[in-house]
């Protein structure tokens, strides 16, 4: 008797949870559309989708609130969350370290410092591409410094302490830049608002230029899944299994730079998403979490869900302003301490 008659086929075992996950995420996004001022129910949201699929228009208030304000913001939250979750999984794989993440290692702070320098010099007015490019370059600079400084020693404490130092340096660079232009009130306000990390006032514009690079970054990340798997054996052993170490580092750094840079440019610094998300994804996947072919997509889904939840919570609490970046750092900081505690009990 063929085994497929008794047990569900292997493909089916994977398709089912992924479909359920995607459907749950879509439903959550639809529900998130109803949150906020104005009496909209799930029915209105479904109507919006139906009308828009036919290429029509809603009545003006609903059109403005649902279509022009909330939908792009929600899509942006999903996109940024997926990108940051994915970047976190790549970073952890690359440094072979569950405590590594773009936030902890100073990569996000580096991106932010470059953007603030751009604000101060006024180059961000030159075009929409300037801020994302600066953010990407800032992230890549930090990665290059990390590689350079940790090439001799690869242990956990050394990597994290290097991250602490780089975080402090990049943070200081931002502060110094701002201090030099303190008399320009508008600049300070713009920089502060941006640094806090928020989806307020972000819409189709940011979604327009951010979706391309983030989607490309996520596909490119997935393409690196096998070499990232092999890295668990150590860099040299991975090399004896056909991994080109230099190329992997370069490509992974470009991917992380692209994802973190674009996300940071779009919505500011959203800390700790890259740290928390891959752990949640691993817990959901169980033993299969070691395979990046599954860990990377799962991190994207979990990241998108987390970002949507954080942003929706923030909107539900309006008029109280709760910056999503602050909320993720709050969750992430506690989570990091818990991880650190577990790491020391169960040394890896």
């Amino acid at each position: 008797m063929p085994s497929s008659a008794t047990a569900p086929s292997k493909t089916w075992r994977w398709v089912l949870p992924w479909s359920v996950g995607a459907a749950a995420l879509a439903l959550a996004a639809a529900l998130a559309l109803t949150v906020g001022p104005g009496e909209f129910a799930l029915g209105d949201v479904l109507e919006l989708i139906a009308v828009k699929l036919r290429g029509g228009q809603l009545e003006p208030t609903a059109e403005a609130i649902l279509w022009e304000l909330r939908l792009p913001r929600i899509l942006l939250a999903l996109l940024v969350g997926a990108g940051l979750g994915c970047a976190g999984a790549v970073t952890q794989g690359l440094f072979r370290n569950p405590l590594a993440s773009p936030g902890v290692l100073g990569i996000s702070t580096g991106a932010a410092a470059a953007v603030i320098l751009g604000f101060a010099l006024g180059v961000d007015e030159q075009g929409l591409w300037v801020t994302p490019t600066l953010a990407g370059l800032g992230a890549l600079t930090m990665l290059a410094l990390l590689f350079g400084l940790t090439s001799r020693r690869q242990d956990l404490a050394y990597l994290l302490l290097t991250g602490v130092a780089l975080n402090a340096l990049a943070g200081a660079a931002s502060t110094v830049t701002l201090a030099m232009f303190l008399d320009r009130y508008a600049l300070a306000q713009k920089a502060m608002a941006w640094m806090m990390g928020s989806f307020d006032g972000r819409g189709f514009t940011q979604l327009g230029w951010a979706s391309g690079p983030i989607l490309i970054g996520m596909v490119a990340a997935w393409a690196l899944h096998r070499p990232l798997d092999l890295l668990v054996l150590g860099e040299e052993t991975a090399a004896t299994l056909g991994v080109d170490r230099g190329r992997l580092r370069l490509l992974a750094a470009l991917v992380v730079g692209l994802l973190v840079g674009t996300s940071t440019a779009a919505v500011g610094v959203i800390g700790f998403v890259g740290l928390v998300v891959p752990h949640v994804a691993r817990a959901l996947l169980g033993g299969a979490g070691h395979a990046h072919a599954r860990l990377l997509p799962a991190s994207m889904v979990v990241g998108a869900a987390l970002m949507l939840g954080v942003d929706t919570l923030g909107r539900a609490l309006t008029p109280m302003f709760l910056a999503p970046g602050a909320l993720t750092s709050l969750i992430g900081g506690v989570f990091f301490l818990w991880l650190l505690r577990r790491q020391t009990e169960e040394p890896t």
Binding site: P98, R226, V232, L241, G242, R282, G287, H290, E346, T348
Partner: peptide, 20 residues
């Protein structure tokens, strides 16, 4: 020495050898 992560089943580790 090979430092390995927690939670990886032995057959998945051996499967890494198939990469080439």
């Amino acid at each position: 020495r090979t430092e390995l992560p927690w939670g990886m089943p032995a057959n998945e580790l051996v499967m890494l050898g198939r990469a080439p």
